[in-house]
């Protein structure tokens, strides 16, 4: 019997496909997420919008918060560690969280290196802005990828940019003659073996979700139509005026993203979405997506 294999790691990610993973900070919120049909929850101390507002150093959540959330629900529980902070990841593995997000939303612990994720039995998800970044994270052992977007803004523009970049580069590699792949690998800064696999398969070798700025059911349907295989919603649910119904509506929109009449029905009477932020109003050094590159 083998545990913590590449197949069990990528397998859990595949089991999440078509689903919504919701950020929660209390057992009560976790229960709301589960009741709304979330396929997993992300246990946090603060949602990204609050991390952004509060400033300071954002770290892994208190284990008590993670354990209390796990007690409240029976769907998978994820948690975030800082980029490069393998000791936080070891703690999360010891707590037996189901998935670790090595996340730019927290303050990076290492400005040059990510965690060597092959050392762990628990699977990791990492953010990316383009295909090169995605393949570097997969080379390090990420079993799942998500767009970075710009977390805590309620503004979908960066997630769209990142998803289009990843999909566009996959299409380009697929059409690139095999004798030009080495140059492509050099250009995007990714290992040739993985570049070749993307060329052969015409797609990524792991599941790719959208994250960072999803605030409405239509945002979620947009990302799914752009090629996301599921979505993370951070601040978008519990910073909206009616979290219960917003959560349900986003689950329905992800399930039926190809049916606008259902997305329309789900979008009715939700109250106000989370307050949004214009990206250009954020000082450059406060942009989260630039972290970890």
């Amino acid at each position: 019997m083998n545990k913590g294999t590449w197949t069990t790691k990528t397998g859990l990610a595949r089991s999440l496909k078509g689903g919504v993973i919701m950020d929660v900070t209390t057992p009560e919120q976790a229960k709301i997420a589960e009741d709304a049909g979330a396929c997993a929850v992300m246990a946090l101390e603060r949602v990204p919008a609050d991390i952004r507002a509060d400033g300071g150093v954002a770290r892994m959540a208190d284990p008590n918060i993670i354990l209390a959330i796990r007690k409240a629900v029976s769907i998978p529980v994820m948690a975030k560690c800082r980029i490069g902070h393998f000791a936080e990841a070891q703690v999360l593995e010891a707590l037996e969280v189901d998935f670790i997000d090595e996340s730019e939303v927290l303050t990076p612990a290492d400005e040059s290196h990510h965690i060597w994720k092959h050392n762990f039995k628990v699977p990791f998800v990492c953010g990316c802005r383009d295909l090169g970044e995605a393949l570097r994270r997969i080379a390090e052992g990420a079993a799942m990828i998500r767009t970075k977007g710009e977390a805590g803004t309620g503004n979908i523009v960066e997630a769209v940019r990142h998803m289009r970049a990843v999909q566009g580069e996959i299409h380009r590699l697929w059409a690139t003659p095999v004798d030009e792949l080495i140059t492509e690998a050099k250009r995007i800064g990714a290992p040739i073996e993985l570049v070749k696999q993307v060329h052969d398969a015409g797609g990524l070798m792991v599941v790719n979700f959208a994250a960072g700025g999803i605030a409405t059911p239509a945002d979620a349907a947009l990302m799914m139509q752009l090629g996301a295989e599921g979505v993370f919603v951070g601040s978008g649910i519990f910073k909206s005026s009616d979290p219960q119904n917003m959560a349900k509506a986003i689950v329905e929109a992800v399930t039926h993203y190809q049916d606008p009449s259902i997305v329309a029905e789900s979008s009715r009477g939700l109250g106000s979405a989370m307050p949004g932020l214009e990206i250009s109003s954020i000082p450059r050094e406060e942009l989260l997506a630039a972290r970890g590159e």
């Binding site: 913590g4 197949t7 069990t8 859990l12 998935f99």
Partner: peptide
């Protein structure tokens, strides 16, 4: 029985 083998760390190949 749901999640009968425990959390993800106990997922396995056999």
């Amino acid at each position: 029985k749901r999640n009968a083998f425990g959390n993800q760390i106990n997922s396995f190949e056999s």
